[in-house]
Design a protein around this nucleic acid. Sequence first.
DNA 1: GTCTATAAACCGATAGAC
DNA 2: GTCTATCGGTTTATAGAC
Lengths: 218, 218
Amino acid sequence: MGENVLDTKNALILAAGELFAKQGFDGVSTRMIAEKAKVNLGAIHYHFGSKEKLYVETFSTIAAEGKNFCLSEILETSPELLKTPSGQAEIIREVVFQFFRDLFEFSRRDWKKRLIIQELLHPSPIMPTLVGKILKPDNEELADFFLVLSPAKTRSEAYAWADMLYAQGFFYLMAREPLAVLRGAENMGEDFLRTVAATTARSMILLAGLPLPANLAF
Amino acid sequence: MGENVLDTKNALILAAGELFAKQGFDGVSTRMIAEKAKVNLGAIHYHFGSKEKLYVETFSTIAAEGKNFCLSEILETSPELLKTPSGQAEIIREVVFQFFRDLFEFSRRDWKKRLIIQELLHPSPIMPTLVGKILKPDNEELADFFLVLSPAKTRSEAYAWADMLYAQGFFYLMAREPLAVLRGAENMGEDFLRTVAATTARSMILLAGLPLPANLAF
DNA sequence: GTCTATAAACCGATAGAC
DNA sequence: GTCTATCGGTTTATAGAC
């Protein structure tokens, strides 16, 4: 493939990904994609065969990316944190804050997580693949971590605990517009998102029976 | 208006509401609505003028309903609970469990909350009205309650606390299919939803600095 | 008020010139 | 590979008979 071919394909994937992430598969037409990518309408079917195959392709760029959060990195670089309750609490705090930073801080280019959520909300045939290859490893890792901290808890409780991170993140990512109407856009800025991250971290630390770190104490 | 007119309009609103709640505005065609309501396609435009106006009408039936949760009822019927920390914790537990019961137990007829969430996820011009008239009163009441329990906390922290209830409920309501794929449908039954409700209640009680009730202790 | 038939616009996809 | 023009299908909405 020549460079210009890759340029066209990449421009289409980028434009399609951003649009699908914002408005969902049904809410985007091939004409909107072609216009945003500044390529001809026919190029979509020439390069990808169909709108649906282009949609699938937008996810292949996501699969190449890393994990959704940084639990395993922390455990590798700072294994000593696992030895004390306050260290364990610090791990949770860092994972939660890193997750929220990824979700919100670079919102200009982060259509990828929105795209994943759109697929979860309106599943297509590729949803099982997305869940199995991208979400499951992260999710099991997080639930396992909870069971290390609290061996007496059940696996269901570990799942409910791990889900809190996603539930909170998804809620603020997808409901920002109504929340801005509900409380005013000036109350939905970075300060509030930090408060949300802190609240989520406190919640998960307390549920694990750990002490609140000093930087999260009330 | 004659009875049969009301019958036709109500049948259309009911059918449209259920379909919109499940598949969103764009995912439902007027033909699907007419077929489900067992009326003629033309009746939609005769009685409502357009698909969008029918969509708006489905929300007017929601506005007539009561609150999203039962905090004020509990405070009226059992004001003595407010006097002790364990009573305050019991209030939170009851509000959370009632909210989850409403969301999941009667899933056959409870398309209304799903419809609200669909509108929040894909806002239309009526979103501000929905937020102001239906969500805001409940939301302010819940945040105010938190500030009664913890007067030293900020209003932002109260909002982040109140949001936990919605975030958890919305997540499990909208992401049930991917979660069933992720963990198996047999692990997503009523037992797990009770675990989720208990986890949410524990979380909000602990964040308010209250003791866990006996029926929520680990 | 209810129905059929159809208009007008949009959609995804394709054929064919270049 | 890129473009224009268009097909076949679906959509919302409407006109007109009954």
